[in-house]
């Protein structure tokens, strides 16, 4: 698809005193691994480097978006809760992981996977104290998302987060009933964890050039949530569906990004070479359009039903011996 009349990257808002570069805070160009720091988007009242723009963004969001935010905030009051004193007898970790993932799907998640919570998935200063993450994914309505970067797509994004929040809360409650701690993270502004590194390690997909995840099933047209728990689970393994092979040669998101924020090469970020989006260019446009989402919708992987065949083609091309 092509984005519908994307507005130009000119802004009727700005900073009198510009904040520090978001790329610098994110650790662009840094060779030493360290935890991520929050720049923009926070679920708490902790001051952010880009606080003023974050507040402005919250205020200009249209009501069809905000109403989902309100409902999700309310339902996430059950993110934590009392743990049953009686611990259920558990099967072996592999069988338990399969059971929990099946439960997540039964509750409505489209994809689920388990990852260990490691340093790269935690924000600075945060210690959730739970060892495993059950990662959850849910696709967005493609017909609504084809309206990106218009407010209709933003409303669909938040509707999906709201649906995910409900699933995460229910899954956490079921785990607590087994006698183990569980906390739902159905809020994309989580101040504890980074959803993408966890979901990549849980085998839900790979990181794409546009800085979002790509899955075989939904391309980039999906959203993430997680439940952290101390259930003794067995982590899944990351998958290779050929994302890097395509992103290395495909330029769709790069060409269709109005503020030219998507970079053609992987970057060194906090000690890791990975796809990275220029934060300082992306966020103002994201704010102007209430969440943009052009890059995830123009991605060839997001074309409904295309992922499995595309993955197969890329992986078999890689397997072919070159003369």
């Amino acid at each position: 698809m092509r984005p519908l009349d994307p507005p130009p990257p000119r802004y009727a808002f700005g900073y009198q005193q510009p904040p520090p570069s978001g790329n610098a805070i994110n650790g662009l160009g840094e060779a030493t691994p360290r935890r991520a720091r929050k720049v923009f988007h926070s679920g708490t009242d902790e001051p952010l480097a880009w606080q003023a723009l974050d507040g402005f963004f919250s205020m200009i969001n249209p009501w069809p978006v905000v109403r989902h935010v309100v409902v999700n905030t309310w339902q996430l009051r059950h993110a934590e809760g009392p743990v049953s004193r009686r611990r259920r007898a558990l099967p072996a970790p592999a069988a338990l992981s399969a059971e929990v993932k099946a439960l997540a799907r039964e509750l409505g998640a489209s994809l689920s996977g388990v990852a260990e919570v490691t340093e790269d998935a935690l924000f600075e200063g945060r210690e959730p104290g739970l060892r495993y993450a059950v990662c959850l994914a849910l696709p967005m309505d493609r017909a609504e998302m084809e309206h990106a970067p218009q407010p209709r797509a933003a409303a669909e994004v938040m509707r999906t987060y709201r649906a995910l929040g409900r699933i995460a809360v229910r899954l956490a409650r079921r785990i607590r009933a087994m006698g183990y701690a569980a906390r739902a993270y159905g809020n994309p502004n989580s101040t504890d964890i980074l959803m993408i590194p966890l979901a990549v390690r849980a085998g839900l997909g790979e990181l794409g050039k546009h800085g979002s995840m790509i899955s075989r099933e939904h391309g980039s047209n999906f959203r993430l949530a997680a439940v952290l728990t101390d259930l003794p689970l067995q982590p899944d393994r990351p998958v290779d569906i050929g994302v890097d092979d395509l992103c290395a040669v495909c330029r769709r998101c790069v060409e269709d990004c109005p503020p030219a924020a998507i970079l053609d090469e992987k970057q060194l970020v906090r000690g890791v070479h990975k796809w990275y989006v220029d934060f300082d260019k992306c966020i103002p446009y994201f704010v102007k359009t209430y969440g943009c989402a052009i890059c995830i919708e123009v991605c060839p992987w997001s074309e409904p039903g295309r992922g499995p065949a595309l993955s197969e083609k890329l992986l078999s091309a890689r397997a072919k011996p070159t003369d």
Binding site: H41, S42, G43, D45, Q51, A52, L53, D54, G55, F56, F57, S58, M59, N61, V65, V66, V69, V70, N72, T73, L76, M158, Y161, G165, G186, N187, P188, N189
Partner: peptide
């Protein structure tokens, strides 16, 4: 004077 500076801004989850 912008209200975005207030603590009780409605944050987008």
């Amino acid at each position: 004077e912008q209200p975005g500076h207030r603590d009780d801004t409605l944050r987008r989850p």
